[in-house]
Amino acid sequence: MLPSESPTARSVVGVAEDLFAALRGESATLPRAESVVLVLIDGLGAISLRAHAGHARALTAGMAKKDVATSVFPSTTAAALTSILTGAWPGEHGLVGYSVLDRSRGVMVNQLSGWESAGVDPASWQVAPTVFEKAAAQGRQAFAVGVAAYAGSGFSRATLRGAEFVSAASPGDRVAAAYDLAERHPGSLVYCYLPEVDKAGHRHGIASRQWVSALEDVDAALARRVPPGVGVIVTSDHGMVDVPAHKQFVLEAEHLAGVGHIGGEPRMLHVYLDPDADADGVLARWRGDLAGAADVGTRAEAIASGLFGAHVTDAAASRIGDLLVVSRGNGAVYDGTAPDQRSRGMVGQHGGITPEERQVPVLRFGAFAR
């Protein structure tokens, strides 16, 4: 059985609205700020941050027990980052996983890097207003500071609409640029994206020296003095867990009868059935094949439990798999018949529902510091 989403838990979905309220001087939790900066450290879970506090002294110096929020489901960048940058749940903005099926064309869409190859228009695929468009509607300037290679990507065009993009090479340069923009443009909203921790985790795992080094670099960047009057929130889209080789569960051809496409990612698969498949029979078989390794539920169960948010649009519902496969513990499930098996080389992974994946820090600096 898939879990239910708590309607009362603090969620990353509300972070942007907290910043707007602080700009208006109307926030119940944040002091008023002249400008605000939202720093997003991709892939940094609250549990792994606390476990490595000695390598992240700037980040954890004022971190209280309550300085956490819950990421969305699935706990993956496409879904969670879009929720943070729109203030909408995946069921509303429609990016319900790493890769999903466009049922109208029978085409799989990689929602991070495959927009162009799949022939998808970001403006019509992701229709929720971004926080930058909301800022512009309020007469505020909006900026997004990130890596140059991401400036014109389909994902950026889906999530950064309304922002002026500014590129900088290193984490330190990006934070410096974000703080400078906020200081020079009173009333503005500035977003700063730091992907280095996530990349190191995928490649080497969160137990690696490479991951610790990436965390130290980000921590050093955020040790920089915040300009007066600028409020800074530092958060993340998700955490991750290390998946050892012996916890890789590989599905071969005999397991895949009745399955037309597999999307999502190994920690949370979207399984799309053939039109003439015996859905109940496939569900029972998958539950038996993956007993103890993963929970298998249906699209209807996931929507009813609120996993994708209280409201799910027709477009979003069409992209959710007929079956959802959520790995337990630190395991992952792979399609052994897929031509590309590179994902089996990833150490750090996410997408599931463990606290390590879904609990993220929400830290306050500058005008927001306690």
Rank of each mutant, 00 (worst) to 15 (best):
E265W: 03
E265Y: 02
P266H: 01
P266F: 00
P266Y: 01
R267V: 00
R267D: 03
M268D: 14
L269I: 03
V271S: 07
Y272G: 12
Y272V: 08
Y272D: 01
D274F: 05
P275N: 09
D276H: 13
A279L: 04
D280I: 02
D280F: 00
V282F: 11
V282P: 06
L283C: 05
L283S: 05
A284I: 09
A284Q: 14
W286V: 04
R287L: 10
R287Y: 12
R287F: 09
G288A: 13
G288L: 11
L290K: 06
L290S: 04
G292K: 11
A293F: 13
A293M: 15
A294H: 03
A294S: 06
A294N: 11
V296Y: 11
G297F: 06
T298L: 12
R299E: 08
R299H: 06
A300H: 14
A300T: 14
A300R: 10
E301A: 15
E301V: 08
E301F: 00
A302N: 07
A304C: 07
S305K: 15
S305E: 11
G306H: 06
F308H: 01
G309F: 06
H311K: 15
V312P: 05
V312W: 01
T313F: 03
D314A: 15
D314V: 12
A315L: 07
A316G: 03
A317Y: 08
I320K: 04
D322E: 08
L324R: 02
L324T: 05
L324Y: 12
V325M: 11
S327G: 15
S327R: 10
S327H: 10
S327P: 01
R328A: 11
R328S: 06
G329P: 11
G329R: 13
N330A: 12
G331R: 07
A332D: 03
A332H: 13
V333T: 09
V333A: 08
Y334Q: 04
D335T: 04
T337G: 08
T337P: 09
P339K: 03
Q341F: 02
R342T: 14
R342V: 07
R342I: 02
R344H: 03
R344D: 04
G345N: 13
G345W: 00
M346Q: 15
M346I: 04
V347N: 02
V347K: 00
